[in-house]
Simulated scan of single mutants.
Amino acid sequence: MRNLLAGLAGSALLAGCTTAVAPPVRLAPGRVAMPVGIVGLERVMGQNAAGLTALFGKPDADFREGAARKLQFQGPICVLDAYLYPEKGAEPRVTYVDARQRDGTPIDRASCVAALTRRGGGK
């Protein structure tokens, strides 16, 4: 009986630990949802390769693997990797970005985007 009560009490405590799941966001075709925590990356997320080139200038590296593509932009402060993936036959668009300082240490992605937009060739 004692074990049963302890088990029920533990179950009741765990039931309070659940989190609500947000419903999926429905967007118009060609638009990318902006997950929480991507403030400052609005100029990059959802862009195609031409949009990134207009923003940052010519990429310093262009890697392709199947339909996926990674464009790398380097500046005096940081390196930004933009990962582009197609969705249902559409042109590949940025779905994720990663950033680091030139020596490899972490840097805020939005700060890197801001720094790169000010480099030569960017708008």
Rank of each mutant, 00 (worst) to 15 (best):
Arg102Trp: 12
Met34Phe: 09
Gln72Lys: 07
Leu27Val: 11
Pro35Ile: 00
Leu41Pro: 07
Gln47Met: 11
Asp60Phe: 05
Arg93Lys: 06
Asp108Val: 11
Asp98Val: 04
Arg118Asp: 08
Val21Thr: 15
Met34Asn: 08
Arg69Ile: 07
Cys78Ser: 04
Pro106Glu: 04
Gln72His: 04
Gln47Cys: 10
Arg26Phe: 15
Val97Leu: 09
Arg93Asn: 02
Thr53Trp: 07
Tyr96Gln: 14
Ala115Ile: 03
Pro29Asp: 07
Arg69Lys: 08
Ala68Asn: 15
Cys112Phe: 01
Val113Glu: 06
Asp81Ser: 06
Tyr85Arg: 13
Gly75Phe: 01
Asp81Thr: 04
Ala49Tyr: 07
Ala49Gln: 08
Thr53Pro: 05
Pro35Met: 01
Gly104His: 00
Tyr83Ser: 00
Leu27Arg: 09
Arg118Lys: 09
Val94Ile: 07
Gly104Ile: 02
Ala54Asn: 14
Val21Asp: 13
Pro86Ala: 04
Tyr83Leu: 02
Thr95Tyr: 15
Val44Trp: 05
Gly37Leu: 03
Glu65Cys: 13
Lys58Asp: 11
Val25Asn: 03
Ala114Tyr: 14
Arg102Phe: 11
Gln72Pro: 04
Gly46Ala: 01
Arg69Tyr: 06
Leu71Gln: 09
Ala22Asn: 11
Pro59Asp: 05
Ala82Met: 03
Ala49Asp: 10
Phe56Ser: 04
Ala114Lys: 15
Lys70Val: 15
Ala110His: 10
Glu91Ile: 04
Thr105His: 02
Ala68Tyr: 14
Ala49Gly: 07
Ala82Thr: 01
Ala22Thr: 12
Pro23Phe: 06
Gly40Tyr: 11
Leu55Glu: 09
Tyr83Lys: 03
Gly57His: 00
Ala82Lys: 02
Asp103Leu: 05
Leu27Gln: 08
Arg118Glu: 07
Ser111Gly: 07
Gly66Asn: 03
Arg26Met: 15
Glu42Asp: 06
Arg100Gln: 03
Arg102Met: 13
Ala99Lys: 05
Thr105Ile: 06
Tyr85Asp: 13
Gln74Ser: 14
Thr117Cys: 14
Tyr85Val: 12
Asp108Phe: 10
Val97Trp: 08
Pro92His: 01
Leu55Ser: 12
Ile77Pro: 05
Gly104Met: 00
Ala54Trp: 13
Pro35Asn: 00
Val94Met: 05
Gln74Asp: 13
Leu80Gln: 01
Asp62Pro: 08
Val21Gly: 13
Val21Ala: 14
Gly51Asn: 08
Leu55Ile: 11
Thr53Phe: 04
Asp60Leu: 02
Ala99Gly: 01
Gly66Tyr: 02
Arg93Val: 08
Ala22Ser: 13
Phe73Ser: 01
Leu52Trp: 04
Lys58Tyr: 09
Leu80Ile: 03
Gln74Asn: 14
Asn48Thr: 12
Ala110Ile: 11
Pro24Asn: 00
Val97Asn: 04
Ala68Lys: 15
Phe63Ala: 01
Glu87Lys: 15
Asp60Ile: 07
Leu55Arg: 10
Arg102Cys: 10
Gly46Cys: 06
Arg43Met: 14
Ala110Trp: 09
Gly104Ala: 00
Gly30Leu: 12
Ala82Val: 01
Tyr85His: 12
Thr105Gln: 03
Lys58Ala: 13
Pro92Val: 02
Tyr85Ile: 12
Pro23Glu: 10
Leu55Asn: 08
Thr53Leu: 03
Arg109Gly: 11
Gly89Asp: 00
Val113Thr: 03
Val94Asn: 04
Cys78Trp: 00
